[in-house]
Design a protein around this nucleic acid. Structure first.
Lengths: 138, 138
DNA sequence: TTGGTTGCAAACAATTTGCATAAAT
DNA sequence: ATTTATGCAAATTGTTTGCAACCAA
C-alpha cells in the first residue's frame, strides 16, 4: 500500500517491481532536487541490486512521461533527463560550473510569455526556459 | 572577396570550399528565417552539386559554433539545428503543428531574467527560452 | 488464463573519430 | 613544404524495437 503503488494504479499501469523501484528512485532524486538520465536511473537500480534492463528503464520512463508522472527535459542535446512531476510548474537555472540545477518560478515571466504569444495571435501551450548562471567572479 | 571569405578569415578559419558553401547555405536559410539541421545542410550541398561529406558538415558547423558564426539549438531531442548568428539576441516560438519557428525578443523578459538570477546571487550568462504555441482552436 | 511486461540482443539515428589523401597558405 | 581540412568508413552514444519468456490481475 505504499504511495507508489497507488500512483501507478491511478496512472492505469500495472504494478510491477521495475516500475515501483524506478518511482522510488525518482522520488529520492526529487528530494535532493536532482534530475536523472535513463542511464542514471539504470545505475541506481543496479546499485540497489535490482536486475532491471536498460531498455525497461527507457520504456518505463516514457510511460511515466505519458502518464504525467514525470517530466522529460532536453537541456542539452544527446540525452534526456527526467524529474518527478510534483504538479507545480517551474523553470530551471543551471549553474555553468557545477551543472547543478536550481528550480524557480516567476509570475511576471509566466504572464509576459502568454502576452507575447497572444500578441502574435497564438495560444501558449507550453514553454521551456533555462537560465545559465554562475557565481559572480568576486 | 565575397563576404563569406572575410567572415572565415576573421574567425581564423582557412577558406575552403565546404566552409564557404555551408556559410552561403546558412545565409540563405537565414533570409527565410529557417533553422537547419546538419542533415538539412548536407542535402542542400548535394542539391548544389557540391560533393561534401556529412562528417565535414558536422565538423564545420561545430567550428562555426565555436567561432560564434552560428548558434546551435536543441529545441527537441534527437538532433540539433543551426542558425547564423546575426548578433542580435532573440528567443523562439515554435508552432506545435507545423514546427515553424518564429523569432522574437522581449525586453521585459530579458530584464526579469537578469533580476531573477541576481536575486539568487548569480550572474546571468546565457539563457534559452522557447514558447510552444498553436493557432487558437477557432 | 491471458494480455500486459520484461530482458536481451539486434536495430536505429545522430554525431564523432581514425586515417590516408587532398588542398590551403 | 607544411599544416590543416576533407572524405569515407568504422566507431560511439543515446534510444528504440522484435520477440520469447514471464508475471500481475
Amino acid at each position: 500500500m505504499p504511495g507508489e503503488t497507488q500512483d501507478l494504479r491511478d496512472a492505469g499501469l500495472k504494478v510491477t517491481v521495475p516500475r515501483v523501484k524506478i518511482l522510488q528512485i525518482l522520488e529520492s532524486a526529487s528530494e535532493s532536487n536532482t534530475h536523472m538520465s535513463a542511464e542514471d536511473v539504470y545505475r541506481a537500480l543496479l546499485e540497489a541490486q535490482e536486475d532491471v534492463g536498460l531498455a525497461t528503464v527507457y520504456r518505463v520512463l516514457t510511460q511515466f512521461e505519458s502518464a504525467a508522472l514525470v517530466v522529460r527535459h532536453n537541456f542539452e542535446s544527446g540525452h534526456s533527463v527526467f524529474e518527478l512531476d510534483r504538479g507545480e510548474h517551474h523553470d530551471h537555472m543551471v549553474l555553468i560550473d557545477s551543472g547543478e540545477v536550481i528550480e524557480f518560478s516567476d509570475p511576471v515571466i509566466e504572464k509576459r510569455q502568454r502576452e507575447i504569444a497572444e500578441s502574435r495571435g497564438f495560444e501558449l501551450v507550453d514553454h521551456s526556459l533555462v537560465l545559465y548562471v554562475r557565481k559572480p567572479t568576486r
